[in-house]
């Protein structure tokens, strides 16, 4: 019964803390869909994969979201045609590389400004590297959820159709006063995607669709968030924290302990620096930085959300690469600085 009580309290506190931030993410995702045209979006994006992922890592400054809000936006970036490097870079970096988190970390670690800059710098570097790594894979579809692949395929087909100008051969229809491209009627998905050029729709309809889309994403993502928070809460109330912290305090084990803690505790990146502060006196700088860098990238609560975008295998890769890079960076900090 006591376990039930503390699990329920933990679970609700995670949910209630996350909902406002999820709302922000869903809102930005809606704005991207209905108020930013794909062509504008793509024009800004560098074609070079490395620059692209660096660019993606910095978009967080425009869309300040935490790890509950980054997934709807990253997913939307992909369906809107952004290169994988940009979307992955954004996914990994946005929860850290944004003004709110910068300010919160600064407030918490004013006495140790190096932690603030190490957090931002390392997150940026790791996210850029990971975005670049994923862009080496020419076709990401084996990694993605089938529904996401379908809408990406629809996009690709439409673009090919345009460039090859085989439109005479495919069935379609025209709307008066709309573009000269036929609206494909033989493929429901493609039609939907074509209809998604929402920027040209009247503002009233766009607001209507914005709310509609927000409600839809909110419903879906918060249901997944429920599952994630529940897992995080159950594990936290059954595994004593001493077991995690007891992993050790030397240069290597302290990093492992803090990274495990980051994945388990699943608190939002906008507030995790205050939490990390409470360990500042007992843990090494490297391990604190690893907590602040790794936590926003991957945690239990967000794995559910990531599943709406990736297949489990890809999440495992993301998890492993992020963990490895963070660990190495923190180890260098602990041993050489």
């Amino acid at each position: 019964m006591e376990h039930f009580n503390s699990t329920f309290t933990l679970f609700l506190s995670l949910m209630i803390e996350a909902i406002p931030f999820l709302l922000i993410g869903v809102f930005f995702s809606g704005i991207l869909t209905f108020f930013v045209s794909e062509r504008q979006l793509l024009r800004w994006m560098p074609k070079n994969p490395l620059l692209g992922s660096l660019f993606g890592s910095c978009i967080g400054f425009l869309f300040p979201v935490c790890e509950c809000g980054n997934i709807p936006v990253a997913r939307r970036l992909m369906t809107q045609g952004a290169p994988a490097s940009v979307a992955i870079g954004f996914l990994i970096a946005a929860p850290t590389i944004n003004p709110i988190v910068f300010w919160a970390t600064w407030t918490a670690f004013r006495d140790q400004p190096e932690i603030v800059f190490l957090r931002i710098g390392l997150s940026l570097a790791i996210a850029t590297l990971m975005g670049f790594l994923f862009s080496l894979q020419s076709d990401l579809s084996p990694f993605l959820q089938p529904s996401l692949v379908t809408s990406l395929d629809a996009r690709r087909k439409r673009e090919q159709g345009r460039s090859v100008e085989n439109s005479l051969l495919s069935s379609g229809t025209f709307f008066l006063g709309k573009s000269n491209n036929p609206l494909p009627t033989d493929d429901a998905q493609a039609m939907n995607t074509a209809m998604m050029e929402m920027v040209n729709q009247p503002i009233g309809l766009r607001i209507k669709l914005l709310v509609e889309g927000m409600a839809q994403e909110l419903r879906e993502l918060s249901a997944v968030l429920i599952v994630g928070s529940l897992v995080a809460a159950v594990i936290q109330s059954f595994v004593p924290r001493e077991v995690v912290l007891g992993l050790g305090q030397d240069p290597v084990t302290s990093i492992v302990a803090m990274m495990t803690l980051a994945a388990l505790v699943s608190i939002c990146s906008t507030v995790d620096s205050f939490f990390a502060l409470s360990f500042a006196s007992t843990f090494t700088t490297g391990s604190l930085v690893s907590f602040l860098v790794f936590g926003p990238m991957i945690d239990l609560k967000a794995i559910g959300l990531l599943l709406t975008m990736f297949r489990p295998r890809a999440i495992f890769y993301l998890f492993a690469v992020a963990a490895l890079l963070t660990f190495l960076a923190a180890l260098v900090l602990n041993l050489f600085l």
Partner: peptide, 8 residues
């Protein structure tokens, strides 16, 4: 410091 998840 933030929510019950980080209570100590």
């Amino acid at each position: 410091t933030c929510c019950a998840a980080d209570a100590y």
